[in-house]
């Protein structure tokens, strides 16, 4: 299958290894990856912070870049959530029927990575090997916007060598919330401190999620407190193989 890869601006700029890992997994499974370099940003930050009019050009640009793709796959539950949940609304705000129609046609071909692997490619064992103690934080938008359910943990449990441990109170928000972490920094930190406690309780070495933005928030504090726990995007775990370890 020819997969058009939506890297997301966040991963492109800050976490290129997530993109590289995704490419590696998809190619290992025998698919061709295409990266349109014209792509930029989905507009999630703008929309969620209240800048709806400013989101419109970003949505137009996204649709223009990806309209001819067979499937669009991205490694971020919140960006994909933005597209699926709010792109139709942005088209409405823009009062643009053509944009609305293009969005309508594009949405069914747009997938978050773990959805794509389990639902479209129908794989759970992607041939990965990761001999570490790992816990998984189901990010809010993966759970409650995309409803990915246990897809990510099914993929993780199929990884050879993994010591997978459940995270207590996993479904509770980590406190990131995009600009919420800046605007209401104190409340965000109060939420984060409980998440950290639960992560440490698992004695995991690696905290995994399907969204690097939440991981940047949790991982930033894990690093500051010198906890000895690191974060990794699920694609990085799935990309690891015995040969390269």
């Amino acid at each position: 299958m020819r997969v058009t890869f939506f890297i997301t601006c966040f991963n492109d700029t800050l976490f290129p290894e997530v993109g590289q890992a995704t490419v590696r997994v998809l190619e290992r499974l025998g698919h061709t990856v295409d990266v349109p370099l014209e792509q930029t940003c989905c507009g999630q930050m703008h929309f969620n912070t209240g800048y709806q009019l400013e989101t419109i050009p970003l949505v137009r640009h996204f649709v223009e870049v990806f309209r001819d793709a067979e499937v669009v796959v991205g490694p971020s539950a919140s960006c994909l959530g933005m597209i699926r949940e709010f792109y139709p609304r942005v088209a409405e705000v823009a009062d643009d029927a053509r944009l609305a129609e293009e969005v309508r046609l594009l949405l069914p071909r747009t997938y978050e990575l773990t959805e794509f692997l389990t639902d479209v490619l129908k794989v759970e064992d992607v041939g990965a090997y990761f001999p570490h103690r790992v816990t998984y934080h189901p990010t809010c938008h993966s759970l409650r916007v995309l409803h990915v359910g246990d897809r990510p943990t099914r993929l993780l449990r199929a990884v050879r060598g993994i010591d997978f441990v459940e995270l207590p109170a996993a479904e509770e928000c980590c406190g990131f919330g995009g600009t919420f972490a800046i605007k209401n920094a104190d409340t965000s930190i109060a939420m984060l401190s409980d998440k950290l406690r639960h992560v440490l309780d698992t004695h995991a070495e690696v905290l995994v999620a399907a969204d690097t933005s939440c991981l940047m928030h949790i991982g930033g504090a894990l690093s500051r407190q010198r906890t000895g726990v690191r974060t990794a995007h699920i694609a990085e775990i799935l990309a690891s193989t015995e040969e390269r370890k």
Binding site: P16, V35, A181, I189, M216
Partner: peptide, 20 residues
């Protein structure tokens, strides 16, 4: 508000698109 309790990883020298 971010850095009072969190470290931030610097922007890497090579973006994903540069690598690609």
């Amino acid at each position: 508000g971010w850095t009072t309790v969190r470290d931030l990883r610097p922007v890497p020298q090579q973006s994903f698109r540069d690598w690609w």
